[in-house]
Nucleic acid binder design. Structure first.
Length: 226
DNA sequence: CGACTTTGACCTGCGC
DNA sequence: GCGCAGGTCAAAGTCG
């Protein structure tokens, strides 16, 4: 669709279903090092081989690309290699997660063992206590004029809320497929209204509604549903 | 008429 | 316990 062809997938954040405290993030900047441990935990949840992520960020990029729906693959590809993203911007959509990611990044090399994420046990305990069990979440930022990007699935809007300190409302969508409980939130970045923050929660139990042909193509990575 | 959006009310978790 | 903010519900409205 032409409206989404201008969209640029810049960076993302995902969370392990089994271990919500394990967060990984990806960036398409080739020089940015990778928080490998947390990353691999999350990759396991999304069925992406850890070996792809352990080597270099570019490997992960390929993994994400090969497992993404055709439409998003087209959106992402033109921007690979030339990405100029070094900073991680906060948004109300993933504020709860960015703190942990930042701590992970700042301490990932110096600390091993159980405390490999560098988050103090006390703080981790507080975080876990605060958070109830969540579906795996995947959040990314796109530059797009349209709020709702065509990701191949059908969504029904079930709510809209004005979030504090932002002039743009947040929209809540649910997958229309029976028994599929995937949700997504869409909002515009307060600092840059051109950027759309899309947060997926849960995993689809079915193929994209208009991407069936591609989803049946043989690939060991194609079980990564968005 | 069914599918979808809108929107105010309600529920829940968290900080103080 | 109270108030705030985010998330969800559901009735009403809209559209094809």
């Amino acid at each position: 669709m032409s409206t989404t062809s201008q969209a640029m997938l810049n960076q993302g954040l995902f969370e392990d279903q089994e271990m919500p405290s394990q967060l990984g993030f990806y960036s398409f900047h080739p020089n940015l090092s990778f928080p490998q441990v947390g990353c691999q935990q999350s990759l396991k949840a999304f069925n992406i081989p850890p070996s792809l992520a352990a080597d270099a960020p570019s490997s992960l990029t390929e993994a994400l690309l090969s497992s993404a729906p055709t439409k998003q693959r087209e959106d992402i590809t033109p921007h690979l290699g030339g990405a100029q993203l070094l900073s991680l911007q906060r948004s109300t959509a993933n504020l709860w997660a960015w703190g942990e990611v930042n701590e992970c990044l700042s301490s990932k090399r110096s600390i091993g063992g159980d405390d490999h994420l560098g988050v103090s046990a006390m703080k981790m305990k507080k975080i876990k206590a605060r958070r109830k069990v969540r579906e795996p979440r995947f959040c990314f930022k796109t530059m797009s004029e349209v709020d709702v990007l065509d990701d191949g699935y059908k969504w029904r809007k079930y709510g809209q809320k004005v979030v504090k300190n932002t002039q743009h409302p947040r929209s809540y969508y649910r997958c229309t497929q029976d028994n599929c409980r995937v949700k997504k939130r869409v909002e515009r970045l307060a600092e840059d209204p051109r950027m759309v923050i899309t947060t997926y929660e849960g995993r689809h139990i079915h193929s994209p509604s208009h991407d069936l042909e591609e989803s049946q193509a043989p690939s060991h990575l194609n079980n990564f549903f968005w």
